[in-house]
Amino acid sequence: MLLRFISTAALTVALIANSAAARAEYPERPISYILHVSPGGATDIMARKLATVLEKTLGVPLPVENKAGGRGAAQLADLKKAKPDGYTIGAVTSTHIGAFNQTLKQYDVDSFDWIARLVNEPYLVVVRNDSKLKTMKDLVDAANAKPGSVVMAGFVRGSGGHFAWEIMAKAANLESNKVRWVPFDSVGDAVTSVLGGHAEVAIAYVDLVKNHVAAGNMRVIGVMADERVPQLPDAPTLAEQGYKADTSWQQMRGVIGPKGMPDSVKAKLADAIKQALETPDMKAYINESSLVPAFLGPKEFAEYAKQQDVLTKQWMQSLSLER
């Protein structure tokens, strides 16, 4: 009897130990990290940098695969097909949430598991240095005085930057269509068009304009964040100028995976990512690229994504961009 008890107990212990060992073993083979962008851009380079640091923390290789095309369609199709075992993960940005509501309606925020948010990037309102617009009030006044006289450059309609402008306009009590929104193929192209004087204002990011500001070619008239940006100490926030825009609306970068990943795997990945973001190498890169560290774990990130999705849906509806 006693012997049987002991053997059962031993077996139970062994089983528990075994399963614990199995769980502790993740990851035991390479994890593919699928991106929605072609090689060479800012998102790609940050992901590659992160992958090299994660390789050290997790002890397995993280091959980065670029699946550009269709604003994330190619990447998401691969993620959707993959097993939710933690060996396939993907990059995500705010643009994805926009696409779920626009071109990639076959997916929504629930189609994927949200693993970790990495960084945020606030939106800026920039003009060329010789522009008459010196403050947000100048911009609002100019638009009210002569609707259509102010041309604003940004990424496609329905993108994060476009909604950022809508949020600002609402905070300023300005009908947003009094400003002409001109969609460019990238935010960088929009900045170039302001530099060339083809558009008067652009909605941009810190990294794209900080050198032009330092060289005296451009001026930032508003920052959509709670605090001033360290790289641009002279640029006032919108709140300082009396416009209460929702500053939680920022461009985000994060990591997602196929739906149904075990919680322990997600936690392990999120922990490793959190550690990676703290390494001096990553910190320096994030600082150099004027990004704001904004880590969120799986649960909080999923909630955040849902909240952004609700906001996106509201804006799509009110701008009748919904299809």
Binding site: A68, G69, G70, R71, A73, A74, A77, Q102, T103, V156, R157, G158, P183, D185, L321, R323
Partner: peptide, 16 residues
Amino acid sequence: PVDGLPRFVFDDGFLS
């Protein structure tokens, strides 16, 4: 290029 609407796309491979 302006509204982000898919045109004559019969397969996701043609989205871009």
